[in-house]
Every structure is written in C-alpha cells, then in structure tokens.
Design a protein around this nucleic acid. Structure first.
Length: 220
DNA sequence: AGTAAGATCCAC
DNA sequence: TGGATCTTACTT
C-alpha cells in the first residue's frame, strides 16, 4: 500500500469526482507534537448552489457565500472545519477551483498511528474510534474555529496543529448511497453522494435526515 | 427579538 | 428519545 502526498491539482475537481478518490487515503495531523494518522473509510460530497451538473440543496454553501462557509469557496486542499450542532468539529477537504464552493466531508476512518492519543481524545476504542464525522474530527485534533482553513497540501502549522492529506491507489470496492442525516430531497437516493469502503467496520450507520424518508417515498 | 433546525453523539 | 450547545435562516 503506497501512499503519496495529495497535490493541489488532485483536488481541483468537483467533489463528486474527488470524494471516492479520498477513500483509502490518510489524514495525518500533528497536535502539539503528537501525530495521528487516520485512514479514510467513508466520505460525502457537497457542492454549492448551482455548482456542478447538479445543484446541491444539502450543502452549507447552498445559499451562497457566508462567513461560515467561506472556506468552501477558497483554494482546494484546505480543510473546512465547521461546528455541528454546537458541539462537534467536522472536517471537509475543500475541492473545486478557487471561487467555486465544494467540499468532501470525512465521515469515518480507522486509526493507523497514534492510537493512544485517539483513545484519549474520543473516549472510544476499536472500530468506534473515528466512526462518524464528530468522532473523526475529535480524533484528528482539528477544532472549530481555530483550524478552519488549515492547508492540508503544504502541511503548514496553524495554532500548534498541522495537517496533511495523503492519497492511496483507487479502492476496488466502493459503495455509494444517500448522505447521512441530510434533510429532505437532498438526503434521498436522488443524491447518492456518500461513498464508503465496502465492508469496512469503521463506516458509520445510515440514518435518514428530517423528511428525507418521506421525500424518498414520493420518488417511488 | 424569537424560534426552529441543523452534514452529531451520548446517555437514559 | 431527549439533551448538549452554538450558528444560521426565517418569522414577527
């Protein structure tokens, strides 16, 4: 399994294209000298309003550029770190060209290195260590708002933390399905924008977003 | 100004 | 199933 550093150009494409290519790769962070390597096992693509072939009503960028989602509109390769439900710092890899909103949410991973630190940060163990975007963010050590916008291509340090994205060879068994917890039509099979490594135990359980199950029923 | 909901997770 | 806890968007 040979990994290589991601380049800016690797991410200069629409999220839907980039997302599956992140599977099997790693997010490597160093927090106060402590390194953790997370193998990415589950991701979701998010576009912006009118971005790409399909508009994305489930994205933070659906209403246009705001202070919160500004990172999503910037240079690819930075990390969009947002606060979920006032509690969890979740991590996205920004993609698409500068000026176009796009990101890939890192939803789950397995800890390759730094297990002790990961356990200390998440309070969980085994396959649950980085299962779900909240735990993934917790284990990575990246925090909202101080690490929002950190550059995962250069690995430059920001507030005592650095982050690097590494890519693997394409994963053979990739599964797709609706995004987790996304409301309404955007959370249905009409947007199969979630990608995961088939059979990996760290992949998070599926759950419908508010009104998404009803919207799906209408499609049938 | 008030309120409802959110790319979540945990304990009851 | 509800609470934690903060931000955004929409309503009065």
């Amino acid at each position: 399994m040979t990994l290589r550093r991601a380049t800016r150009g690797d991410l200069d494409a629409l999220p839907l294209e980039v997302a599956p290519r992140l599977l099997g790769g790693e997010l490597r962070t160093v927090v106060a000298g402590v390194g953790v390597r997370l193998r990415i096992t589950e991701v979701e693509a998010y576009h912006g309003q009118g971005t790409g072939e399909l508009a994305d009503p489930g994205s933070h960028a659906r209403m246009g550029r705001t202070a919160r989602n500004a990172t999503m509109w910037g240079e690819p390769g930075h990390l969009y770190v947002y606060l979920s439900h006032g509690i969890h710092s979740c991590v996205n890899v920004v993609c698409a060209p500068d000026g176009i909103a796009g990101g890939v949410l890192l939803r789950a991973g397995s800890v390759v290195e730094g297990t002790d630190a990961a356990i200390a940060r998440s309070g969980r163990a085994g396959r649950d260590l980085a299962r779900g975007p909240g735990r993934f963010g917790q284990v990575s050590g990246l925090r909202h708002p101080v690490h929002d916008g950190i550059d995962a291509i250069t690995g430059a340090e920001l507030h005592d933390v650095s982050a690097e994205l590494w890519l693997a060879q394409p994963v053979e068994r990739v599964a797709t399905g609706p995004r987790v917890g996304v409301a309404g039509h955007a959370g249905t099979h009409a947007f199969p924008w979630r990608f995961w490594i088939e059979g990996d135990p760290s992949v998070s359980p599926f759950r419908w977003g508010r009104g998404a199950a009803d919207a799906q029923a209408m499609l049938d």
